[in-house]
Write a protein that binds this DNA or RNA. Sequence first.
DNA 1: TAGATTGTTAATCGATTAACAATC
DNA 2: TAGATTGTTAATCGATTAACAATC
Lengths: 205, 205
Amino acid sequence: MASEIPDIVIGRLPVYLRELSRLSEEGLEITSSHQLAERLGISSAQIRKDLSWFGPFGKQGTGYNIPYLREQLKKILKLDHEWPVALIGAGDLGRALARYGGFTHRGFRIVMIFDNDPAKIGSYIGNIQVQAAENIEEQIRAGQIQIAMIAVPTSSAQAIADTVVKAGVRAILNYAPITLSVQNGVRIQYIDPAAHLQHMTYYLG
Amino acid sequence: MASEIPDIVIGRLPVYLRELSRLSEEGLEITSSHQLAERLGISSAQIRKDLSWFGPFGKQGTGYNIPYLREQLKKILKLDHEWPVALIGAGDLGRALARYGGFTHRGFRIVMIFDNDPAKIGSYIGNIQVQAAENIEEQIRAGQIQIAMIAVPTSSAQAIADTVVKAGVRAILNYAPITLSVQNGVRIQYIDPAAHLQHMTYYLG
DNA sequence: TAGATTGTTAATCGATTAACAATC
DNA sequence: TAGATTGTTAATCGATTAACAATC
């Protein structure tokens, strides 16, 4: 049953997928748990154990067929179709995210952008027009959007989270440096660069 | 001995510090492991255990003095002085990072920015002038910079990492979606929003 | 004092690793 | 076949939690 697979295992699958894509770009057709392990700096046993939660994907003596394993991982992570994403916040960070080219070939497309600044509403970022924040709930519901990226000031992040969840969002990528409170069943991932830096300074001389 | 404290514990300290700052802004002077736990969605036992690695900071029956605990955590994480940071890459993301206001009050200041695009070299982002990438090694060495943020295309990320490490950098915040290979003693933290999104789609219907 | 909360221990729980039979 | 690598088991390792004496 899928729900008993450790979350920490799920979190590594995108990293495996990313490295497989690189190997593929390098022209390789076959890889092994050892090759992946060396490139990712983890143990080959862990890679084999992680994959074995989902089925046998390799061949003894040979390794893994890269295109096949990529396909399988994409299926597991539900990346066999593109996910529409709502972006809340059109400041510097929001605009950088909207222009970032790395989402599409990995399964995501920003389809709506919101801000509460009258100077930004109506303007275009790429080919998407920034909408008023008051339309968030209606638009997300109408578009049946399940994923939102929050790139607003800390002071409004919780209210925005409440709004998007009410509208049906079930996965939030939160760039505001604050722990959000949401109902059960809603997933949140946090991106807080300052926290990452603070984690590393502990080890600096 | 500091080196035996689990890295996963170190990684939670910035989150505790962040929440303590919020409590402080709300005007509170005292908190408890229970209050912190509820706000962060983790167990109070974990918070007390984590803190106990570094010393007794609380008072039985009362809890923790917020200003005091903040000071102690800052000392532990070496945040009692400001860290100069080199930013490599002045594209959309680099510019958003350079303008991000959230670094300074958490212990970091971007003091140099590099790019290899002649159209960007010499231009200003805030009050910092973008320098040519060929100056990276010399400038980082001269400034004795220990922390770098990498916001360059995937194809050049490893080469940039090699360069900054050669120049003396010991902590890298990497925004390129690639696992970097560096010598022992160099810390890396990864920020890959697409990977975070892929982690969450596993759970979506 | 009575009530509350810490710091710490021991138990539990979960994740990683080593090892190897199976087999390509 | 000989060599290599998977998938899986069992052992090890590490992290989390429950519980409570100490004490403010």
